[in-house]
């Protein structure tokens, strides 16, 4: 990653080879459209090429940082796509499945990083469901409320209570 900041194309290629399948999976999950996901992925690596110096090795592993960066870019793209088609009905995506057994199995082996999974399981179902849907679908409060057919204020208070409990659990 440090080499990318110095404009090393070979370094970019190595990082791309190592990470693009993971990042493309993330972009595809958030955007739900291959062409959009390909464009988002291209943006991620071009941003990296131009501004890799923003990566701080003290803070996070490169792959974690890149994965988060890809999710954020995909969400930005989703928001601007929705603003272009704001009159169209919001597509009701399928609900995010709750912690699946296969996910659980993969997670147990990474205890340090898996605290978020443990803490999510301590939440009430509507809170957990809303937080997971926001995370995996890039849904806003308004979209969550629409999907669950509850008032916006109700959804906000579910999620806020959930986030407060999540934070308390994560900091234990």
């Amino acid at each position: 990653m440090a080499n990318i900041a110095q404009g090393d194309r070979q370094a970019l290629r190595i990082v791309y080879t190592a990470t693009s399948a993971k990042l493309f999976g993330i972009c595809l999950r958030i955007l739900g459209d291959r062409t959009e996901a390909e464009d988002a992925l291209q943006e991620v690596y071009l941003s990296l090429w131009r501004r890799a110096d923003r990566f701080d090795p003290e803070r996070a592993s490169p792959i974690t940082w890149l994965a988060t960066f890809a999710r954020n870019r995909a969400i930005d793209r989703l928001r601007s796509a929705r603003s272009r088609t704001a009159d169209a009905p919001v597509e009701i995506a399928e609900q995010v499945p709750d912690d699946s057994p296969s996910a659980d199995a993969a997670i147990e082996s990474r205890e340090d990083e898996a605290r978020i999974h443990h803490c999510l399981r301590t939440l009430d179902e509507p809170q957990r469901d809303a937080i997971r849907t926001a995370f995996f679908d890039g849904a806003t409060y308004a979209e969550l409320a629409q999907r669950k057919a509850v008032p916006l204020g109700t959804m906000k208070s579910w999620v806020r209570r959930g986030l407060a409990r999540l934070k308390a659990c994560l900091e234990q």
Binding site: K22, I26, T64, R71, I107, I116, F136
Partner: peptide, 8 residues
């Protein structure tokens, strides 16, 4: 939240 991305 980042570890959740491993589920994808």
């Amino acid at each position: 939240l980042a570890p959740l991305l491993d589920e994808i």
